[in-house]
Amino acid sequence: MSSGIARYIATRAVASIITVLGAVILTFVLTHLLAPNPAHIWAGPHASASEIAAITKEYHLNQPIQIQLYYYIIDLFTFNFGMSPFFKQPVSQLILVYYPRTLILIAIAMFISIIIGIYSGAFAAVRQDKFGDGIVRVAYLLTWSTPPFLVALFFQYLFSYYAGWLPSGQLADPSLKVPPFVTPILPLNAIIFGDWGFLSSYIVHSILPVIALTAISFGIITRITRSSMLETMKLDFIRTQIMKGTKMSKVVYSNAVKNSLIPVVTVISLLFSFLIVGSLVIEEVFSYTGMGYLVTQALYNYDYPTLIGSIFVIALSVILINFVTDVVYAFIDPRIRMGER
């Protein structure tokens, strides 16, 4: 590893940490300054006067603002997001249960999206303005313009109600008991307890949400791959490769695609944000109990600690993914690797 790349990673890390601190302050401003009555929203709508007094003391809400901020930062960095007034559990515990379920869906959907997106984008770029290009462009225009809940309904109707191939919703068959919490990864827990019935039901129930998430997100990758391929194909080195006698398929799918991937890497954190938002409503349609369920339940039941804890963890994930993609970016592109950009 050259010093160029080390310096690059260090600057990106510093920038990420600054953003995390900013996120802390932003949520603090929201919860302690903008909220009309902080103690009231932390305690939940049905809290009694004594409960509110207890909350005020626990969150140091009667102290000067800088003391509040101090305790707030300490709490957030120890992942202490308080107690959920609705679930009656620590918020960090809730996030640990529900977030990984959604992350699994998102990770799989992201992987498929990237593959479909790169392939369809390259396919369209090679056939610029021809029939194949038109089909791909219409497909991503439609998936981009359709609200995620409608996409979910469409696949639910198609694969579940109409074809009857897949269950219409739930995390797994409701008659099966969810295996006890040992690791945050649900399928791993099922394996640990040898609960194969639950595992297979869980897998089958996860297919529709993954399909819906893939459908709403692949267009982002298709679009950027297509336009970046079109730019790359005009460059001189593509002509050099052709003139060298390299097979056309290799020129397109190796030289051109690789060079077009650089902008694709930069939209991966955007893709993640998009999938998080999509999962909120898609899980609602499929009654899938993941992060979307946690957030919407918190929303419907005035559970403020859960809401703030959730969005803080989501923002952390986005910042982390941004950092990782920046690093990956550096390894793909030798120009950054050498510290020249």
Partner: peptide
């Protein structure tokens, strides 16, 4: 046939 192009900085694949 082989061609040498005008711009030396653009005629080689930057990732290779």
């Amino acid at each position: 046939i082989f061609v040498i192009f005008q711009d030396p900085f653009q005629s080689l694949d930057p990732l290779v």
